[in-house]
Design a protein around this nucleic acid. Structure first.
Lengths: 200, 200
DNA sequence: TTGACAACATAACAACCGTTGTGATGCTAT
DNA sequence: ATAGCATCACAACGGTTGTTATGTTGTCAA
């Protein structure tokens, strides 16, 4: 279950710090995630943080990398898998908040995304990451279209962006109004926006 | 063009401060919008801010109120207007970023939204605001459905949430990748998600 | 037993934050 | 002319921030 096969004890401890940082960011926000707050969440002092990370930027870099890994780990290879519309639904279902601990990762991801809007370096990273998702979905939809699973008259690139937008939108709304956006309701919205993919 | 018909000079000066605050938030982020940074944006010192506002919270309250006013000002009364699908498109078109100075307002709004996720008081405000939009769209779609402008088998409440989600999603993506999300492309995505509203 | 090193705790530092009080300036009504 | 008030500039305050240096503890090889 560990991240790496040859993970040293130091690496696992580092991961604990990253986890604690995510917890603080998700609960209090990115700007309130100070060194001392993170250390307190960990039940230690800032000495732990400075020992395993060069500075705060370094720590946040590890956090962002962990989030990105979470985003891409459960991704499928669009060229090797013959996905049906049902598979697409399941894939999005596991990705959205409302299931498992996804809400925590969504909160952290959204915090970094908004912060990236004011940081050209981080903005470029986010752009390329979304570009990656975009090309993945475009390839997947193109393959499905060739197999007749997606209506022929649709533009796969545009539909890929529709998926990205609807997922982001549902994600945000679910974070704002979790009592309204149950997992089933999130899926209902996604399916409503995706129904047009079906042929005929 | 002023906000209020009987606006005093003090009110207009207050509005200048609010505008400057929005500019700083949009450019540098909410956490970087310090009193001194806002004053510098205004070409003054913090004396101006403390004179017109009790404290920073008070100032940010005015900013949020200005944003909300921007959100609701160009809203239509769903019961009095006989909107067509074309009108819905135009309404959303004026609302999305990519047109006029909407991008600035979107950045500020998103900053407040993410901050609200870690503040139960602000979170409730955002929830009720989205609830307001939700009921507006539901009423509008219901009326259009009764007039045969929207397919009869659809659930207006669900479709209202689809609209809210797709707008938020397109808005965020447009802020992240403005060079990709032109105004026309934003509209194309919205129209793609909205095409299913048409009857038959 | 001792020395080296990892794993922290602790304290101090400058920089920045929001807030407050004080004073200078200029306009306005009397 | 002068009192009064609006409109700021400015400095200082306590608190919090990230960073750095130094101290303490345990472990383990030689």
């Amino acid at each position: 279950m560990s991240a790496q096969p040859n993970a040293t004890p130091a690496d696992s401890r580092r991961d604990e710090v990253v986890q604690a940082t995510c917890a603080v960011i998700a609960r209090e926000g990115l700007d309130r995630a100070s060194m001392r707050a993170i250390a307190q969440e960990l039940g230690s002092t800032t000495g732990v943080l400075t020992h395993y990370f060069r500075d705060k930027n370094d720590l946040l870099g590890f956090v962002l990398k962990a989030i990105i890994a979470k985003l891409e780990l459960d991704r499928i290879d669009p060229s090797s898998v013959e996905a049906s519309l049902e598979d697409v639904r399941n894939l999005l279902g596991r990705y959205l908040p409302g299931a498992a601990d996804n809400e925590l990762w969504w909160r952290v991801w959204l915090a970094f995304t908004v912060a990236a809007l004011s940081d050209s370096k981080q903005a470029e990273q986010h752009r390329s990451l979304y570009a990656q998702m975009r090309s993945m979905w475009t390839a997947l939809l193109t393959a499905m279209q060739a197999r007749g699973e997606v209506a022929a008259e649709l533009d796969p690139a545009l539909e890929a962006d529709v998926i990205l937008c609807i997922v982001d939108g549902v994600g945000i709304q679910a974070l704002i109004s979790p009592e309204l956006y149950s997992h089933d309701y999130q899926m209902a919205i996604v399916e409503a926006a995706l129904a047009r993919l079906a042929p005929r």
